[in-house]
């Protein structure tokens, strides 16, 4: 996969080739690809001159460094108690209905993945979710339909 090679090379020249560059490079791959493939991990290992096991071990520790394919837009709905009390389940069901996927799955066109995540830090404005890096708060079924529809059009 020449593109991955290119991407990893660019990230390594931007962040450096020390062990401290590993996580910024992994984050860079996520930003472009939304997940870190086996090829990407091997390539990073080669570039930083560490074993692929080290790269794999580090990547799999972090919940935002996905190692399985994800859609272009990763939706993370907060499942912690404050959001749960404000009707998180309703929001998750609404999204499942719209995208015809369950939590943990990716749509067939690889556009959306739906995940649940721990406290996002918006407890006073729950339910809350992230789509990639953007936060959405005070969600209602109606509001979430509008937001997802906008992303569908993107």
């Amino acid at each position: 996969m020449p593109e991955i090679k290119e991407l990893v090379k660019n990230l390594a020249s931007k962040h450096g080739k020390t062990r401290e560059s590993l996580i910024p490079i992994l984050q860079g791959v996520i930003h472009e690809e939304r997940y870190i493939s086996d090829e990407a991990m091997t390539e990073i290992a080669r570039e930083l001159d560490i074993s692929a096991a080290q790269v794999y071990g580090t990547a799999t520790f972090y919940s935002f460094l996905d190692t399985q394919p994800r859609g272009k837009y990763v939706i993370r709905v907060c499942r912690t108690i404050s959001c749960a009390m404000k009707g998180k389940n309703l929001i998750t069901h609404e999204i499942e209905d719209m995208l015809k996927i369950k939590v943990g799955e990716t749509t067939q066109n690889k556009k959306f993945s739906l995940l649940e995540t721990n406290c996002l830090g918006w407890c006073h404005k729950g339910p809350a979710m992230l789509i990639n890096d953007d936060a959405f708060t005070d969600l209602t079924a109606e509001k979430v339909r509008e937001i997802i529809n906008q992303y569908i059009k993107k």
Binding site: R19, E20, I23, Q27, F61, F64, L65, N118, C119
Partner: peptide
């Protein structure tokens, strides 16, 4: 930047993370 791990708020885990480790 962190990458979604509550434990990295614990100071020594945070150093590990900054150094490029689990």
């Amino acid at each position: 930047m962190g990458s979604g791990a509550y434990i990295c708020g614990e100071e020594s885990a945070l150093f590990e993370s900054m150094e490029g480790h689990r």
